[in-house]
């Protein structure tokens, strides 16, 4: 039986990296006595996969992992037993059962919502609202992406599906597929470029932005659908 677990990673848990988050959940599942399935072989590992890694420093209200279990009582029971063993800052939000033929979360991620604000003292000294609207109204937003081997220019505008700024908070829906993945800080690098800001605290993007991932989506004929929407409670 395939289950999809949605969880939140809040507060200081943002300092726990992706690999350690995976290790944390492997142990949590054992503590909660979830009847998870293991791979064959001498060093069996839990059948568990994560939808999308979350960078260190980012919080989230919408993280996903898929697991295969040999048996399970109900969505509520699993959620409850996992939540009883969570540390402060980690919370299970939902557990749904997936159809047997469903693809794993990682392969179907298409987009993600982010809620972003500037850390206090790191705001740029501009009229953010009007500049951001201008920035978005461009037909293309070219940015130089540096890889280990080369630099290439890419247009990130098509990967920004939705964006708005109000009351000090940016709300973005960005492409998050493996072929088309837009890191939220790249949007702000482009925004800084657009505003002609080359130094100052707001260019230290790792520190300047407080990024919270709100939801992760797959895409089907009806548009974007939260990953938990592909399964149902049981």
């Amino acid at each position: 039986m395939k289950l999809r677990i949605k969880f939140a990673k809040r507060g200081y848990m943002k300092f726990v990296g992706h690999l350690d988050t995976m290790r944390y959940f492997q142990k949590a599942i054992r503590r909660a006595d979830i009847d998870i399935a293991y791979s064959e072989g001498f060093n069996p590992h839990q059948l568990m996969s994560f939808a999308a890694p979350l960078g260190v420093g980012m919080t989230s209200e919408g993280e996903y992992m898929d697991i295969v279990v040999k048996s399970a009582t109900s969505s509520e029971a699993i959620k409850k037993s996992l939540n009883e063993t969570m540390v402060e800052g980690m919370e299970i939000i939902s557990v749904v059962k997936l159809p047997d033929d469903s693809k794993n979360a990682m392969s179907i991620v298409a987009a993600a919502d982010y809620s972003i604000k500037y850390r206090e003292g790191y705001e740029p000294d501009i009229d953010i609202k009007s500049k951001f609207d201008e920035f978005l109204s461009q037909e293309s937003i070219i940015i130089t992406k540096k890889t280990k081997k080369s630099e290439k220019e890419v247009d990130i505008r098509p990967s920004i599906y939705e964006a708005k700024y109000a009351d000090g908070i940016f709300e973005l829906k960005l492409a998050s597929a493996s072929g088309e993945y837009l890191k939220p800080d790249l949007v702000f690098q482009a925004f800084n470029n657009y505003c002609g800001i080359t130094d100052g605290k707001c260019t230290e993007l790792k520190l300047a932005l407080l990024i919270n991932r709100v939801e992760v989506y797959a895409k089907n004929d009806n548009g974007f659908i939260p990953l938990e929407g592909l399964g149902g409670s049981f």
């Binding site: 200081y12 848990m13 300092f15 726990v16 990296g17 350690d20 944390y24 142990k27 949590a28 503590r31 260190v56 063993t85 540390v87 402060e88 800052g89």
Partner: peptide, 11 residues
């Protein structure tokens, strides 16, 4: 940074 934040399981 996880070295310094505590909050480990069973703390």
């Amino acid at each position: 940074p996880e070295r310094y934040i505590g909050n480990e399981v069973n703390m």
